[in-house]
Design a protein around this nucleic acid. Structure first.
Lengths: 344, 344
DNA sequence: TTGTAAGCGTTATCAA
DNA sequence: TTGATAACGCTTACAA
């Protein structure tokens, strides 16, 4: 890398002091018009680029927001990140994205990297393999703004953006009941995650309210891999009394399940009805099309970023924003050929 | 944000000089064992975290690789980024991801942001709306390592990772010919992109070699939006002599086209055969399943990162690495019910 | 209106 | 083995 042009170089060439150059570049009020013009001219000529690193050091913080998500290849997160980015850019901030890949160890390492880099704050969705929140507690203790979205850490009193997972799951399961399902399986997420538990509660309450018995064997906790979901669906279909409906906590899981169900020659939705979560674009592309709980990922990301900036400005808060979801009914669960949407 | 603990604080508390603390923390050889132990102990107790910003300033560069891609929500890019990240992390680097959103202006802004932040280098896939490469030329002129992948800038002599787009397109189109297609349309990308042109050339040569006439009206240049692809496919199908095969330069475009073809009641692949590009996971999920040119995005990302580090170590180069592709034939173009894969 | 100098956190050089 | 000091690029009182 070549030596970069600094204000010192400009100062030397123009025979002025570096502070004069700084002021000219910064449009400072107390600066001669002629001097300013000459500085700007030379700066352009030399292709001067301000060194953000030195500013960051001076202020002991950067204009970068650190983001940690399980995987950017999950469509939900790529959209949420775009939402965060939109707000961040408008505020003159850039974002630094890390993937935990669902690994607790990587999440801890990511957190450290980002705090070492003195990011202005962190916006996080937890890894599935989460084991403790000590690393996040340290962030909070240092007074670094920390915002959670989607997969939040319930133990920390920080701003959060979520959907009402309990209610969304309740609505989805009740929809399956309305379609005539009596043995509804749950492809749940990792039990360490708050959202997993919320969705589980919604599932349980929907069964209870509708007078259906709880059958432990119909509940499968999983990581979010295709292999695991495939294995578990096979196990479910192999039960003496197999499910006639499956609610999966992500569309990826639901599609893995769908593949297994189709391979068994079972009719969807007549013999097994399916509902997923996220309303990923693939949901409408698969065949049969997949019913799914829609959550506006872009909006969730935007809201998280907004909470970050209000946290920055107004000081610590622990506000929780809840974003609406809606159930999008498609072929995979529509036994009456109606098609509809329910708030949830 | 609270004041962070610095080596100065540790030095004061221990009544030693800051250089001693620095040495202890850095495992410097010339340091007393006892002193070192006391420093490390206190550092842990105070939760000392090194300030990367100051190091960056000292070295005038960061351990961050800047990445600019059109959209992280394109599955290809999220995979490529993961590939880059894997290599980067092993080398002790972090990545900073920017999205151009296919906008030339944003790409220029991203480039500026990243160079202002003194990233160690840039790994880029160009925006569809690209208009000039002056902003990248400036990066090169400053001696900042710049690597392109996938959508490369042909005019710059820098390392690049590509697939043989000409050959991949040739193979795909020839496959359609073999399936009996005689009027093959091309849903091409923006004409400003090198890969668009390469794929166009492959298309043209495949027609010529196979004795099919070139029909200008069957070639549609587009941005990568669903709307545009939908509009263009409708136009194609409305021609006096509509196509009996469509090669789209991305799976997203192909699926948009597929939707239109299905809506017209035309049979796939009998009346219109379809081939896409990227082998996105959705390709195997849609119905009929979509034939597609597979490119190993993760591998492409890894290779780009490797080129970056060899560029860093061994000095400037303009090496171009070509990653293999293969045509994955699925229902959308398989008129003989065979199913096969061809290198391309 | 312009210049001087201190300081942000760290490392490297030189001296003790 | 340890300490003092300069330096990285920039902003900002304070002084001129």
């Amino acid at each position: 890398m070549k030596d970069q042009v600094t204000i010192k170089d400009i100062a030397k060439r123009l025979n002025v002091s570096i502070s004069t150059v700084s002021r000219a570049l910064k449009d400072h009020p107390r600066i001669g018009a002629g001097t300013k013009a000459r500085v700007l001219e030379l700066a352009r000529e030399l292709d001067y680029q301000p060194n953000v690193l030195s500013l960051n050091l001076l202020n002991n913080r950067s204009n970068t927001i650190g983001i940690i998500v399980p995987k950017i290849s999950y469509h939900f997160y790529s959209l949420a990140i775009s939402g965060i980015e939109e707000v961040a850019i408008k505020a003159g901030y850039t974002i630094m994205i890390c993937q935990s890949n669902e690994s607790f160890a990587r999440e801890v390492a990511n957190t450290q990297d980002l705090t070492y880099s003195r990011v202005a704050g962190l916006i996080v969705s937890q890894a599935g393999g989460t084991q403790s929140h000590a690393h996040f507690q340290r962030v909070v203790d240092r007074g670094i703004p920390l915002i959670f979205f989607n997969r939040v850490c319930e133990e920390l009193e920080v701003p959060k953006v979520i959907v009402d997972n309990y209610r969304a799951a309740y609505t989805a399961v009740e929809h399956l009941v309305e379609q005539g399902c009596r043995r509804i399986a749950l492809l749940a997420g990792p039990s360490g995650l708050h959202i997993s538990n919320q969705r589980l509660l919604g599932y349980l309450d929907a069964l209870r309210t509708n007078g259906l018995p709880l059958r432990e064997e119909l509940i499968s906790h999983s990581d979010f891999t295709h292999e695991e979901a495939t294995r578990q669906t096979k196990a479910l279909l192999g039960l003496p009394e197999p499910p006639d409906g499956i609610f999966a906590v992500s569309d990826r899981l639901a599609i893995s399940a769908m593949t297994v169900v189709k391979a068994r020659g079972l009719k969807i939705p007549e013999e097994v009805a399916l509902v997923g979560f996220n309303n990923d674009p693939v949901a409408s592309l698969v065949s049969p099309s997949l019913s799914s709980v829609d959550q506006d990922a872009f909006e969730i990301g935007k809201t998280a970023a907004q909470l970050f900036f209000s946290h920055l400005g107004a000081g610590p808060s622990a506000e929780t924003r809840t974003i609406r979801t809606r159930l999008v009914v498609r072929e995979s669960s529509d036994r009456r050929g109606a098609g509809k949407q329910e708030e949830g």
